[in-house]
């Protein structure tokens, strides 16, 4: 797992950025820290246990890589390629995704809680046991994906498609849902209200 060492700045409760004694905000050289993590993420086979909270990345091709136990909490991703990549036990809470491509990705046991997801493709992906609670999802496609045991509780979903998806045991209890298509998906196997939760 990524490091749980606290930032050395008194009063700061954030965890340290990878390779630094402090979080990104209090890092003595944030640019060098980001560059070092970027190099690790670009490694051909991917990376394990990276603490990249708050990192901002744009225009990188991270397709086909495998990431395990990484934290991208509060990170920002713009025009990124994650096509066919694998993410196991990775955390993207409060992250912002804009114009990213996760098509064909394999994301298992991941958390996207409270994230902002705009114009992103998760088409034909395996999104198993993923947490999208509180996520604001806009103009995004999940078409052809397996979302088994994932959760979309108190999220806001707008102009997005979940067509031809496996929604078995998926919790869809959004606070707002506009222009969302579930065409050819097994919505009867999804859980849509608190009165029908089951194990």
């Amino acid at each position: 797992m990524h490091s749980f060492q606290r930032c050395d700045r008194p009063g700061c409760r954030a965890f340290c950025f990878h390779g630094s004694p402090a979080c990104l905000d209090h890092s003595p050289d944030p640019a060098a820290s980001v560059q070092a993590v970027q190099a690790l993420l670009l490694a051909e086979r991917g990376a394990k246990d990276i603490s990249a909270q708050g990192i901002s990345l744009e225009g990188l091709d991270l397709s086909g890589r495998k990431y395990i136990g990484c934290s991208f909490i509060g990170a920002s991703f713009k025009n990124m390629l994650f096509t066919g990549s694998t993410f196991l036990l990775c955390f993207f809470d409060r992250a912002a995704f804009e114009s990213c491509d996760f098509s064909g990705a394999n994301v298992q046991f991941g958390s996207f809680g409270g994230s902002m997801i705009a114009n992103v493709s998760f088409e034909n992906s395996e999104l198993l046991h993923c947490n999208f609670d509180g996520a604001k999802i806009r103009e995004t496609t999940f078409n052809g994906s397996n979302l088994y045991d994932s959760r979309f509780i108190r999220g806001e979903i707008e102009g997005s498609d979940f067509e031809n998806c496996d929604l078995k045991r998926v919790y869809f209890i959004p606070s707002r849902q506009e222009r969302v298509s579930f065409k050819s998906s097994n919505t009867m196997e999804a859980i849509k209200d608190l009165e029908h939760l089951y194990l």
Binding site: I73, L89, F91, D93, R94, F109, G110, S111, G113, G114, H129, C130, N131, D133, G134, D149, S150, R151, I153, R154, I173, L194, L199
Partner: peptide
Amino acid sequence: GHGPPSTVGTERLYNV
């Protein structure tokens, strides 16, 4: 014990 992982910050804001 069941379902996907989360973080304390996310649960504080969105747990029904």
